[in-house]
Design a protein around this nucleic acid. Structure first.
Lengths: 186, 186, 186, 186
DNA sequence: AATGAATGAGCCTTCATTCAT
DNA sequence: GATGAATGAAGGCTCATTCAT
């Protein structure tokens, strides 16, 4: 029972990892299932034992990535001590960006062609709304006027910063983040 | 003689237009050269008289799009009268976003998977640097400290805002832009 | 215009012919599209220029075969001079069996697994009803009692005979047919 | 010892049953060994302990089906009392058709593409000859002229009737059979 | 005996591209 | 210039079969 479970999990994890990396680097359409299997040292047939289709592999990769991020943000205590919510949110985003660069690349690279993965995007919208709401809450807490619009702008700034970090080598994300945080202090 | 030239140009323009629209909507890989030719009412063979390959068509689409944008920004008088450079830059960006939505979609959708179009991205980098430099110059003019870092942040904010505009229906880009502009006033 | 038409028709006919032969001999599922293309000396890709799918190829083969048979039976004068309608019907069936052996093989071989070609079978039902009605009419003309049931039996006898002709080498179909005809004389 | 044997037989029987049902419904090629194993609640590996290959499973299904039919006809007393041999033969055939519909479907569906199961068909020929001989014997007993040819025709009629019964919903096989029997009375 | 992980050949189909006319 | 026939590599996916445990 557990004998198979273990092997299965191992293979699945490997495929998810390789798939994420390749999809992020080359794009979904441009990455062949064959390449993924080969890179993961797993036969083509076995891949299909675990994932019903290329789409489903992508979906699972997404599901896990989104879950990771959601968890990470949920763990953030709503009211820390020495730092504002906004600061913590931005710092956490930067941390995640560095840790899960591939996933973010995939996300930012794919969300424009939502045709590929309509369902996934619906899920993402939910997460996005969740994040924007959290940002807004923090802005309200900080006493900033026009929290709705400010949330949109701050979210855009963070997203743009993230995008540039993923796009350019040696992007000084920490400095940019610090500057952004500073703007919302006092 | 000139009549041939004219017809040729007309066909090329049509192909560029259709190509841009389809690439933007469905993605580069997911769009077939056949579909483009059909949609443009041009035979497959003729398309290959105008463009050596699918890649070259994309390149031409890019080249023109980038040129358009470059021109548009170049035409901006460096110092208008009643408004700051930053304001003009942002307003112009918003205007272009609305006018050339397809091109921006293509650009934002493709730039993460640079494998497809390495050469194009090199060109883009140049444009990007140009824009960032212009932003920085405006910041200096406005007497803002840390103009280098501020330029990066502002550029990111604008880019993020653009991205969200392309991504979400009914995004209130004008309001967000106004808020952003306000931040750099005084 | 006609230049392409001609070539196209030539290729299509070849594919239809080879497809019919192979489907009849080996069965639909067991025959690969590659084999058909190769046997017809036509590239795999070209086949797909003419037929959207393996299924559609089969459908076209069917359509043509059914049409042939329908035409053949329609051309039969309803009242000849020296022979009864039943005799003419049976003789015509035998003639067609010999001429279009492959098509009949395909038909008899495939109709049991109607899943493959549900639509086709609906069309066939129509033809079948048409034939059974014609048989019945002939029986009525011949003054045979219970024409409905007799039509069913006669149809079954003809079909069984046909089946055996297709199945066994050297089946004396002419003799069996003669015997069957005799039964309905006087 | 015997308990193992018992369980084995049980599993084999289940596989034969499920296999027959699926092959009959969907066709041999279109039915996967996986589906059979799953439907029979037996692991893929175990199936291969019982049958060396998909082909062998089919062969075993055939062997048993043919045996059943052979037995059934052998048990028929050659000369009953109140009814002729022909009547008994036809009635028995109808009875078997109803009882073993799946097997007959499989048989009628597969026998045209003998490539799949050449050996099986050789066996079938034997059975066919046996049946035809029996029919002929009955015809001789009944004093019918041209018993050879008549046997072929009667066999064809029965086979055709069987085919139509398998093919059409609500086929009045009993009535058709009665009519056929009547023809050979007196 | 029994499980299901693992393999790889083969299938249908699409697509960029070339070529004869 | 203009057409669409023709090609074949490559892609996603299925499936019979083997094997380690």
């Amino acid at each position: 029972m557990s004998r198979f479970q273990e092997k299965r999990e191992q293979s699945v994890n490997k495929l998810i990892g390789v798939g994420l990396s390749l999809f992020a680097t080359q794009g979904y359409e441009a990455t062949s299932i064959r390449t993924i299997a080969a890179e993961a040292d797993i036969s083509l047939g076995l891949l299909y034992n675990y994932f019903k289709s290329k789409d489903e592999l992508l979906e699972e990769i997404f599901r896990r990535g989104v879950q990771d991020i959601h968890d990470s943000f949920s763990d953030l205590p709503d009211n820390g001590s020495s730092s504002t919510g906004i600061e913590r949110h931005i710092r956490q985003t930067v941390k995640l960006l560095k840790e899960k660069k591939d996933f973010w690349k995939l996300l930012h690279g794919i969300r424009m062609q939502s045709a590929v993965v309509k369902q996934l995007m619906a899920d993402m919208q939910e997460q996005t709304a969740f994040i924007e709401a959290r940002i807004k809450q923090n802005l309200i807490t900080a006493g900033i006027p026009f929290p709705d619009l400010e949330a949109k702008l701050l979210f855009a700034s963070i997203d743009g910063m993230a995008h540039h970090f993923l796009l350019y080598e040696n992007y000084p994300i920490d400095d940019v983040a610090s500057l952004l945080i500073m703007k919302y202090k006092k």
